[in-house]
Write a protein that binds this DNA or RNA. Structure first.
Lengths: 225, 225
DNA sequence: TGACTTAAGTCTGGATGCAAAATATGGCCG
DNA sequence: CGGCCATATTTTGCATCCAGACTTAAGTCA
């Protein structure tokens, strides 16, 4: 995991998330070579990966730009994510084992403990994001369809990942964990409809939380598409 | 359109779809260099792209293999496709213009003419696939969310593309075009629910047609689970 | 005989040089 | 003075070379 492509990927990705590379800005391969201290080959690999994940827009013979997300795009991708997660949890509801149920339940208990005892808001957000990711990754694993779960990173609007880290407060985290617990109950009853409804609410709530927490930003002019 | 990366991408993709590269087989970069008559750099680009789209599996320092599909995976990916196409046409129903409507209608008329006059079954299949792709590409364009439409290739099970090319007969093509016409009517009424229902039936029918390896005259099929 | 070690061979990941396309610059003509 | 065309520079795309990792196979020892 310490090879050049991953290094370039992580550095460029972090630069975008942190805002060092602003939306709409041209990304020069040569500049990334200097920034990451690797050659152009892994830089190009990283840009391709970031393009797949929606961080970057690439055009043939022209290069790459930091992708701008319109409000409409973010909303639509959230809707797509809700549908795909809905399918995932349907599969989970039919495939989950007792061991899987126990693991998910443990995750929600851990989360509850963190919510109850972690005082620092930043640390709370950090730990929430970690446990939250773990929970959803376990869902993908149980759904047991790599083709679908590999698609999910492409349905996580990049600006969201950034924003949520700062905007999650205790109530929001609490509600999220309640959703997870409802999911576990639905799984324990093998109730796919219930599970799907819960996870869709879960995603829609995340969208609203994102949207309302968004400052009205002035975006750089995106390249013509 | 005629650059080395695309050439390699298309040739390798076609080899997988046509079965020249069988599921589970190791893909040697050097072999692809000889097959595509380009250097290793564009071959590597192509393999990475195909990895995004689920055609090949890549492992660090080990190379690439043709990814195999289980029956379960195919079924689940069809379900995912139905959901995503359902969202796409909802967006179309709210965004389409009169010009867009006319273009789609023209496509269905062309298709009807082909069905009526093309005698050779192979030519019929060819022309159907071309017009069908055109129709769906127009939907993606009208939906106007590149982020979502770029993901659709990853939801096209490779073995299916192959099978349908040989299995589409006149009835199946006819039914498909009726679905398209129903879609256009739904769009003209800006009826997103109608459009979504139609396209889901459309995809489910395609799945059943694939699964049974024979045409189906039934339009409404039960949910996949 | 079988399993482990080790060394040779093969293949992928990364770096660099070169060619072509796109962009930027400057001069010319209207 | 402004728009257009030609040229120069920059940047991307492609090919090739080198190094490191993995695979394979032979050989040795238990």
């Amino acid at each position: 995991m310490t090879n050049a492509s991953d290094i370039a990927y992580r550095i460029i990705r972090k630069s975008i998330i942190d805002g060092d590379l602003v939306q709409g800005e041209k990304i020069s391969e040569e500049a990334m070579v200097r920034l990451c201290d690797v050659s152009r080959t892994p830089v190009r690999d990283a840009l391709r990966q970031l393009s797949f994940e929606g961080y970057v827009l690439q055009r043939k013979n022209q290069g790459a730009w930091v992708k701008s997300w319109s409000d409409e795009e973010v909303k639509e991708v959230y809707e797509a994510r809700a549908r795909m997660e809905g399918l995932i949890v349907r599969l989970v509801a039919t495939k989950i084992s007792d061991a899987g149920l126990a693991k998910l339940a443990t995750n929600t208990d851990d989360m509850a403990r963190v919510i109850a005892h972690e005082q620092d808001p930043l640390a709370l957000a950090e730990r929430f994001l970690g446990l939250n990711r773990e929970f959803h990754d376990q869902l993908y694993e149980i759904a047991n369809n790599p083709r679908l779960s590999d698609l999910m990173p492409a349905l996580s609007p990049p600006p969201v990942v950034h924003k949520t880290a700062k905007n999650f407060n205790r109530d929001r985290v609490q509600q999220s964990n309640e959703d997870h617990r409802a999911l576990v109950r639905a799984f324990s009853k093998s109730d796919a409809n219930w599970a799907e409804s819960v996870v869709k609410s879960h995603i829609y709530a995340a969208y609203v939380s994102y949207r309302d927490g968004m400052p009205t930003t002035v975006m750089a002019t995106p390249p013509l598409e």
